[in-house]
Write a protein that binds this DNA or RNA. Structure first.
Lengths: 213, 213, 213, 213
DNA sequence: AATGAATGAGGATTCATTCAT
DNA sequence: TATGAATGAATCCTCATTCAT
């Protein structure tokens, strides 16, 4: 069973950082608050309070407030996403999917579940991406890596088999990402649940129509 | 030629507010700074400095910093978008478009140009929408209005003529918005230009494939 | 008929200052606002607004906000009170009162009416007296003047006639002022009306008991 | 020996609030400054400076400047005055006073000492009472409580024994308060000392005359 | 004389951060 | 390690005052 939840992976990285329970509580509280109110609207005293910890403790491990943000987002971007991508690759490649349609549906379901399971982080990343160019660049690279990596391989495979239109991969990826986001973002922003089963089926249906030659 | 630029329409509303040159400078500076650094990371002294004005002047017309935000976003949401929607309606309805393909391309080009022409506002709205539920709701209503208004009419027309798939309008609208956003958002976030001619052609091509029965 | 109303006398001094209608309106508004909210809690823009005047006009005649206060309180202390005292003297001396009791009642009624007619000024003076030593000194001098003036003459007269206890005049004056204030101050502070007829009768009754040998 | 000093009782309540030395210094400085210059004319930076503390510390315990005022005045009104009243009751009731004259003298001395010992608070309350209706109401209730409480009991006792005139208690209380205030207020306002021994004797002498049948 | 836009110093308040215990 | 008191710079905002028109 694949771990499709950053919280779980996150816990690992936190352990590697040798965090005490209180410091982990700080991160958990920060995750919640940053996600709900935004980084700027969250004070370190808010964090301390929600974590049931003194303000001093907040600064023991993480030198600055931005340090906390980095400790939350860093793993998400630098370690967790690629790791998840790797799992995703395996899930995709290992059992060769019968056709593009099934493949697409699986990919979409996979990513939607991922998003749903990590909404708080997603919200934080969204917020920061708008004003933080560095993060934006990072996100761009992620997409590039996906295309030049396992996803690209799969795409080319289906293009050769005539099931996928012969547009540049980047264009295909854009529609894929974009369509998934069309379901995920509204839910993330409004903090509402999604039925990922139905949503992924719908999205796949549309994408198949749009991307089949 | 329709005015497809909020700055222009915005100027009108500003004039109606009877703002002095300095007060307009305050709004211009705020627009720029909010867009670049975010509302929270922009101080009123930043604004005053960029506007070449004293801090007192910043507060003469707009009672609070949030008031400035409202003065920027309000017209965007409450007056300009509907107005733009109206123009867009005319553009759509008046000369009955030969086919759905042309219609779609026009709509998309129209909205992309609109977005490109108002990137700073778009960025600000995006930022705020994440933490401000009120704004989020407002945006939702906008979409509803479009569907129950002119856009919905057009959609139903093309559904009857057999050129548009008979999905719920809200689903069709989602893919439309989503696909356009797929081009606009990256540009907005990275502050990069788009070639709206090519982008709208590409987007329309994909959407036609996905939405034709 | 004696003018027992500072507003009326005030009007004169204002005329002598050659104030325009608007500037008078400034003083009237200031009187009201200072009395209700206090000097510190009244902004010059409050004044301008209530006076129906621009902020600039507020400063045309009165160089500073304190200048307005002075223009209100000055006449009260420096000109109006002595003037009223003079009238009061006449009322007292001219028709030699049959006995101390009647005299006292008249004096008290006279002063209570005066206070009631000028409550706003009274409130302002009270406020300022607490933090403004200068004003406090001024008030002290007023009392001295009364005693060394007409009131003292009358007191000595009734002491000689055996109707008034032979305490130092300052002590007698203290009880007089104090007892009147006991009726006036609560009303002034709570902005409530007094029945000066009954109040002065009560006060006189008590004072007669306390001050008759 | 009864504690007749709010500063002392105040110290208790402060301890209960678990204030640090610096925070107590903030209250002490505030007491002094509010009393001398008035609440409005005292800035939080004034307080910080006099307390030898940073401005941040001023706000650690008391969330707002008004909070400091409340922390000074609250105990005075809500806890200390009733407590003092209780002590005063005992002092009055326990050893049945030989006559009304002695009773009165004791009461007056007691209250005058109380006032003298707490002049700063008295000044602050006076200032605020003028513009703050809430406080005014509170003061009114205090008087009511006194009359319906121990003081009223004593008054009725002496009325029955024929030593106190049979006026309504509220009227008698007015003259009592008023006469004491006649000695206390000028001293409080001018920040001058009183000889409470002589003053209370004088005041009692006058009141006895005025209130004996 | 009157306006009202503009000023900028100052005020209350917040908050990330430090440090002695 | 954890605490939480303390800091002080920074922030939003107010307001008395000035001045060009």
């Amino acid at each position: 069973m694949a771990i499709n939840n950053i919280q779980a992976l996150f816990a690992e990285s936190l352990n590697e950082l040798e965090l005490t329970d209180k410091q982990k509580a700080v991160l958990r509280a920060s995750l919640t608050l940053f996600s709900e109110k935004g980084f700027n609207n969250t004070s370190t005293s808010d964090i301390a309070q929600m974590a049931g910890v003194s303000e001093g403790t907040v600064y023991k491990q993480f030198k600055t407030k931005e340090g906390i943000l980095a400790a939350i987002i860093g793993p998400f971007i630098q370690r967790v996403v690629p790791k998840a991508a790797h799992e995703f690759t395996e899930a995709v490649i290992t059992p060769p999917y019968p056709d593009f349609s099934r493949f697409l549906e699986t990919v979409i379901k996979n990513r939607m579940d991922f998003a749903v399971d990590n909404m708080p982080q997603l919200r934080i990343v969204l917020q920061e991406a708008i004003t933080n160019q560095e993060m934006l660049t990072g996100l761009g690279h992620l997409l590039d890596n996906l295309i030049s990596g396992p996803l690209g391989t799969a795409f080319r495979h289906y293009q050769r088999s005539g099931e996928l239109i012969k547009w540049p991969l980047i264009r295909i990826a854009r529609y894929l990402v974009t369509t998934v986001m069309g379901y995920v973002l509204p839910a993330a922003l409004a903090n509402q649940p999604i039925n990922t089963n139905q949503a992924s089926k719908e999205a796949a249906e549309f994408l198949i129509r749009g991307l089949t030659p």
